[in-house]
Design a protein around this nucleic acid. Structure first.
Lengths: 153, 153
DNA sequence: TGTGATAGTCACATTTCGGTACTATTGTCG
DNA sequence: CGACAATAGTACCGAAATGTGACTATCACA
């Protein structure tokens, strides 16, 4: 419970928030200072082919109203646009713009850089195994809330 | 970016939020349904000897006003109490009550159970190494915000 | 064709958060 | 010893984020 032997929740919180801090700070240096970690829940799941809002809500674990609002903001900032889904006239596809794709490329680079640094800290094989272990443990997208709330006790 | 090859942020978010969901759901079944993940930032760092609010703010990465409010709530719920710090008359120690200690014991059990399950999934040695790797990578408490904000893109 | 379910949005209330300002106390430096 | 900057904690207030319920349009299926 103490810093000496932190529980899994503390470790996960540290991992997530230190990553968020660094990613968005470095994104800001590269001309993407208007997106906040809040938008990450959307940005992280964008696909060039477009994704439905409902699917984004499912993946990110947020309510669809919140997804709608985040998409509004990203649309106003020029990161995504809404296009009608040819397969379903009720639905709209959230598609990244050129700026959105640029953000995605930068975010990928930054995260890759961070991952390289971690690999350097604990060794390539250990890092590769960490990644595999995390993927095995966290099977599917978190269903409840995906992006907020404190660490468990 | 896609579920197939999720980035580190997505993995960290899944790990944290799935853990939070389960821990607090199971705490609710054990008579601790009034504490929410928000309180986790405090509960996770409580110590029977008492911790100063400023220290809790530093550990959890939250503003001291927020820590004050969370402590207010936990105090009203009977989980902690404020005692004057004999070493500094400005400061107060946040000390867990018997109920707070009970919550801590339950939370520890639940987390231990989850960790056992994970160890069963990927194997004891792999899980032990996962834990070591996480501790090595996440050196000190997250400085910025510790407990909220979406996943990075 | 009719019925229930789904995609998305609007509007409202509630909760949560961040910044400024303030008091009390401490430590430090002349 | 006395002044002054720094720290611990709190109160207040506006801003931001979230959650709920209701509504329209469209789809799927019987």
């Amino acid at each position: 419970m103490i810093t000496q032997d932190p529980d899994l929740g503390i470790l996960a919180a540290r991992l997530l928030f230190s990553l968020q801090r660094e990613v968005f700070a470095r994104l800001a240096e590269r001309g993407h200072g208007e997106v906040s970690p809040r938008h990450g829940a959307i940005l992280a799941y964008l696909d060039a082919g477009g994704v439905r809002a409902t699917e984004l809500a499912r993946l990110s674990g947020r309510h669809k109203q919140i997804v709608g609002r985040l998409v509004d903001e990203l649309e106003a900032l020029g990161y995504v646009e809404r296009r009608p889904d040819p397969a379903d006239r009720r639905a709209k596809l959230v598609v990244p713009t050129e700026r959105g794709l640029d953000q995605q490329r930068h975010a990928d680079e930054i995260i890759a850089d961070i991952e390289r640094r971690h690999a350097g800290t604990i060794g390539e094989p250990a890092y590769a195994q960490l990644r595999r272990a995390l993927m095995a443990i966290t099977g599917e997208p978190a269903a409840g809330q995906d992006e907020s709330g404190p660490a468990p006790g």
